[in-house]
Every structure is written in structure tokens, then in C-alpha cells.
Write a protein that binds this DNA or RNA. Structure first.
Lengths: 212, 212, 212, 212
DNA sequence: CATGAATGAGAATTCATTCAT
DNA sequence: TATGAATGAATTCTCATTCAT
């Protein structure tokens, strides 16, 4: 009766997550059209039937994966919010946030996901929009709220917190991310390079936005 | 030999460019995998044989198109170089450059091309790299040279002109371009919004890089 | 053995009839090839194994259903036989029979069954033959016996009772049934229309077959 | 230059009609779902591509065949119309029409087509309706016009020519056609049997509709 | 050279049926 | 006994590329 040990997921759930894992890997590496349901079943080591029983069709599987991939955005948002909430050394803490931001965003998985969504924005406009809102936009919005706080505390001087958040984010992220978008298989940036992007971005940001 | 009247391109060359035009349109709109050689031949109104006579295979045709699409980058680079070369009002001329930059880069064709290259960066790494060098990187490099000049003339204060060029470019471009990447079919930005991105980007840039 | 309470069918028999019910519905609506064993199991709310335990395979299940569907033909035959057996007003009672006949045959279930058998006559010739004998032919034969009786009583004048029965039946039924065969989803006939088919059919029949 | 001999159809048209022929045969024998595009291509001895180039998809091919099959209904209608137009011996000419009618309708191809449309009435309601109008209904309507004429000439006595046409048609056709619907592979009726159906049908019809 | 056809494979999806738990 | 999974093939349709005329 107590046929399933409670710490286990059960055969079915295990298969389901094997499929999700396999499909994630394949979609991220080969794109939507470059991935076949046959491959997914093979990599997940399940039958095609099992894939279709769990996910209806390829589009739905794709959608589930994309939206599931944004699950952990909240954690990241919380971390940066906390770091800036009661800062006593703005330059230092913006630097910390910047390094964390860039480190998060430069992860291969995140870059692949971004590439994938951009590639499929035409075919899956709603999915692209949903991803955009849940991941990059959500982060910018949280950052804007932090900056507004800092302005209220007299630490920053700004008219438009959302614009400032965009400036901050892209001063830090754009150069490595843009390069990465076009160079999937190249050597990644070194930690030192990334730190430099972070620090220089913070420098420019503060030059423009620090209260005199 | 003298069988072609000189003012004409010749039947053959005309067909070749019909194919290029058709394929460009289709690749940009539907992606590499979403475009079939049948469609290309149909839209170009030539036979499939003619396509294969001119381009060996689909990959080569794709490559020719992508690299051909960077032909006019030089003009743009010349324009911004000229605008900054002997500036007498730095803020005004940086603003002009910024507006021109953003206007160029936000064109549907440019965005589609960018999306396409990002989508295919995994499948065509060399092509993606080549595009990157010929288009965005070439522009940044030219800008860096301008900024170095301006620094030498005592108008800017910078250690790393290439970094400064990146900061300038992305302060202006990132926000609209990032949004556009994920929202292929949405309303484009208005001219006023784009100008604001340009002006605010210049403001931040100068706060950090103008010689006191 | 005494393991089943007598007033119940038993789990097993209940499942069996759930399967029959589900399969009947699906076969009638979607045809043989349009119905999958998966669907049948799902609609019957049993596992596929249970379906196969009870019915060997799809063909056998189909056959069981078709032949089972002729179970109530006897009742109808009895009714019309009784109505004509000791008639004292031939025109009235033929009219009653005609109305009953048409009402029976025009029922959606009957029409669907007919369509299904016609559709599958090539694939299941024995089944089609069996259905034909048990349903339409049996009715015609019974009618022919009645008509022979009426002839013996001097009420009808005929050489071939079976032919007369066919004439009667089709004078009444053909027009609505033929239309219904080709118009599955159209509005059914109204009761008034059906009565007119019955009455006019009887009129023509009596003009030819009533003893002067 | 005069590369195609005028009496020929041309390669392409020849292939097209090979496909139509093969598909007709297969659809009529095996039904819509029982026929695969692979089979059609194989029987027509063309590649699957050629099938798809000519017909878009299976549904369209099916529709083309069904509607094409009604092309020769007009000829039949003309023949029966002519036979009744200026009749001088009504019984004889109705008998001729009846025999012709039954001979036409009992042809294997016609029966198969009928079976096929009935089978697919659920999936292709518009097609079934169109077939119904172009073939059986058109004939009945023409017959009704003839009967109205005959009534006007004082040869028939009727209130509703359309009803009379239905009575005529089904008195003759129903018995053999109904049997044939359920007995695809059985021996067909003999000519003598068919003539008897025709003659007896005419007899009953005239008993009810001949002007006294 | 250009057209229609062919090739040969591969995609997504579904099915009837059987196995293992 | 019943459930989920597997099997293995079939179906519709598309594609890149190559022949033959």
C-alpha cells in the first residue's frame, strides 16, 4: 500500500522531469526547430508516447520549459533588493549588486535562454513577452524601486528611476551580453573582466546619478 | 561574349539579385530553418535549379546574404566620424550622433538581422562572428577612435576609449534594442521616445566622461 | 463465487457495460477508424487493460456492439405485427404502422448505426450482412407476412408479399432516410413532415395494393 | 520547340490524372481514412511530392475527386428528360426511364461513391451536401419537372410533383440500393432482377398517379 | 539552361497492442 | 487486476538536393 517511498517522486514524476531536463538541454542548444520530439524522448530515455502523454505537443512543452525557467528570478531580485535596502556604503553595495547582476546574467543557461527567446520571438510572441516581463523587466523594475528609495534617502539624484535602472543595468551588462549573444561557443569572459565591467559601469552610473 | 548590352545586368545577374532579394526577405522574416529553398525560388520567380546554380546550397546562400547586409556599415561609420571630427559643440554633436545611431539601429531590417544572427549563432558561429565584427564592433571601434581624438583635444577625460565607446553606445541603444529583440511584432518606438533615449544617454555619458 | 451480491452486476460486469456504452457512443459518432481504444478507455473510465481483457481487440468490440444494437428489433416487429394482425380499418392501421416505422427509423441512433455499417461494409462484410438481416430485412420479412395475411383476408391484392413490403417500407422511409444519410448535422425533420411522408406513402401503397 | 504533340496532355497533366485515377480507386475502395497519401502516390506511380504539388493536401484531393465525380450527372438528367418530354406511351417510357435509372445507380462506382459520402458525411458535411445536391437531388428535381409536365398534359394526376418524383425514384431504386449498401462484395443483381424492380415500381407508381 | 519530377529522409503526431509493476 | 510505459509502425506533410527532359 505505502507503495511509494515518500522521499521519491514516483515513476511518473521522475519521467516527467527527465523529459523536462532533456528538452531544456536540447531546446537551449539546438533551438526550437532544431530539436525533435524523437531526440527529446531518446535523451530522456522514455518513449515518445510518454512525452506526448505528459505535454500534449511540442509547443506546450516548449512553453512549459521557458516559463519554468523564470522560477528563480524572484530570488535574485530579493538579493539585490536586500543589498541596497539599507546600504551604508553606496558605492560598495552598488558594486556588489553589479557583480552579482553580471554573474547571474552571464551564465551559459541564461544566455542560451535569452538567445532562444530572441530567436523565437516571431513564432512565440506571447511567450517572448511573458519571459521578458518575468525576467529582465522584473529585475529592472525592482532595481528602479531600490533607486527611488535611495533617491528618497538623498543618496541618488534622479527624475526617472526606471530610466536610471536601465542605465545602471545596461552600463554593466551590455558589453559582455552583446558579445556573448553572437559568440555562443567562444571562451567566456574571465571573472576579472566581468568585475571590470561591473566596476566601470558603477563608476559611470555614480558620476551621473550620485547626489552631490 | 558581347552578347550582353552593357547597360544591363544581364539575365543572369538579374536573376541572381532577385534570388538574393527574395532570400533576404524570407530569412529575415522566417529565420533560417523557417525558410525553404522552394519558397525562395517561388518568391524570386526562378527555378530551383537557378538558385542552386548561383549558390551551391542553402548555407552558402545564407552566408552571402548576411555578409552582404553589412555593406553599408561604412557609410554610417563615416557619418558619425565626420560629425565628431571637428566638433565645436560636443554636447550637441554627441546628441546628433546618438540620434543617428539609435535611428539606424532601430530599423526593422537591422533588428531582424540581429535577431537572425543571434538565433543562428550556434549553427553558424563564423558567420555570427563575422557579422559582429563588421557591424556592431566596427562601429564601436570607430567611435572609440573618435573619443580618443576628443580626449586628445581635451574634450573628454578617459582611460579606455573602447570602454567609453561601449558605454556611450549602450547607454543609448540598450533599452530600445532589448525591448525590440523580444517584441518583434509590437508597435515600434515613437521618434520622441527614441530621442529621449538618445538625450538621456548623452547626459549620463557626459557626466562621467566630460573633462571638467 | 458468492462474492458478488446478487442485486449488483459486479464490478467486472459494470466495467464491461461502461466500456460498451462508451464505445457505442464513440463508434457511432466518430466511426470505426475515428475511434481509438485510448478514447474508449478514457470515456469508460477504465484502464486499457480492462478493455482488452473484456474484448480481445478492437474488431471484436466493434462486432459485439453492432450485433448488440439489434436487440430491440423484435419489439418493433411485434408492435407492427400486432397492429396489422386483426385490423378493422386497414387505411388507419397502415397509417399507424407507417408513422411508427418512420419514427423508429429516423432516430439519431438508428441513423448513425446505419451510416456506420454502410461505411464499414467493405471492411466488415459479415457484420454488415448480419446487421442487415437482423434489422431492416427482418422487419421487411415480418411486414411481408402481415401483408400475406391481409391478402389472405381479402384486404390486399398482391402476388409477391415481399415486394409489396419493400414498396411499403420505402415509399414511407426513403425520402427522409436518404436525406438524413447525407446530412448528419442538419436539422432533423419535423413531426409534421414525417407524418406527411407516412400518409402519402400509405396513399400510394393502397392505390396499388388495395383490393378493389 | 513544338515540343508537345497536341493530342497529348503533357507530362504534368498526365501525372495529375494518374493521381486522380489512383486516388479515386483507393478512396472508393478503402474510404478516406483507409487511404494513405503514400498509397496514392505508389499506385499513381508518382512521387509524394507530385501529389502534394498538385493537390495541397488530402482533404482537397478528396474534395476534387468527389465533386469531379458528379460531372456526368447532367447527361443522365438529359436522357431521362428527353425520354419523357414528348412521350406517346407513358407506361412504356416510364419503364424505359426506370430501367435506365436503376442501371445507372446500381453501377459499382456509383454505389461506392454513395457509400463513401455517407461514411464521411460527418467529417465532410459540406462535401456531402454538395454531392447530394448535384447528384440525387438534381435528378429528382429534373424528374419532378417532367412529372409536372405530364400532369399538365393530363397524363398524370398529382398535387406535389416533387413528392411524386421521390415516390417514383424510390419505388424503383430503394430495394436494390439498400441491399447493395450493406453488401459491397456480394454478387450484384442480375439484369432480370433489376428490370423487375423497374417494372413493378412503375406499376405501383402508375396505379397511384395515372390520370384515370 | 530551366522545368517538373524524383529521391530519401525526417518532422510531428497517433494508434493498437503488450509489458511490467 | 489495473496502471503507466513501451513498442513499433503508420500517417500527413515538408525539405534539401538532384535528375531528366
Amino acid at each position: 500500500m505505502a507503495d511509494e517511498r515518500p522521499q521519491e517522486e514516483g515513476r511518473s514524476a521522475r519521467k516527467r522531469s527527465a523529459i523536462l531536463e532533456a528538452a531544456t538541454e536540447l531546446f537551449l542548444c539546438n533551438g526550437y526547430q532544431g530539436t525533435s520530439m524523437d531526440e527529446i524522448a531518446a535523451v530522456a530515455a522514455v518513449s515518445k508516447q510518454t512525452v506526448y502523454k505528459n505535454f500534449t505537443d511540442k509547443e506546450q512543452l516548449f512553453g512549459d520549459i521557458i516559463l519554468g525557467a523564470t522560477d528563480r528570478v524572484g530570488e535574485f531580485v530579493d538579493v539585490i533588493t536586500a543589498a541596497l535596502a539599507e546600504t551604508e556604503d553606496l558605492e560598495r553595495d552598488l558594486g556588489l549588486v553589479a557583480r552579482r547582476y553580471i554573474a547571474t546574467v552571464i551564465q551559459p543557461r541564461v544566455l542560451q535562454l535569452r538567445r532562444l527567446l530572441i530567436a523565437e520571438a516571431g513564432r512565440f510572441p506571447d511567450l517572448a513577452r511573458a519571459y521578458y516581463q518575468r525576467a529582465p523587466e522584473r529585475t529592472i523594475t525592482a532595481l528602479a524601486a531600490c533607486f527611488q528609495d535611495l533617491a528618497d534617502r538623498g543618496l541618488l539624484r534622479l527624475d526617472d528611476a526606471h530610466l536610471a535602472a536601465n542605465h545602471f543595468a545596461w552600463l554593466i551588462l551590455s558589453t559582455p551580453m552583446d558579445k556573448a549573444m553572437f559568440h555562443e561557443h567562444d571562451e567566456p569572459f574571465t571573472a576579472a573582466e566581468l568585475e571590470r565591467f561591473a566596476d566601470e559601469g558603477v563608476r559611470v552610473f555614480l558620476a551621473a546619478y550620485r547626489r552631490a
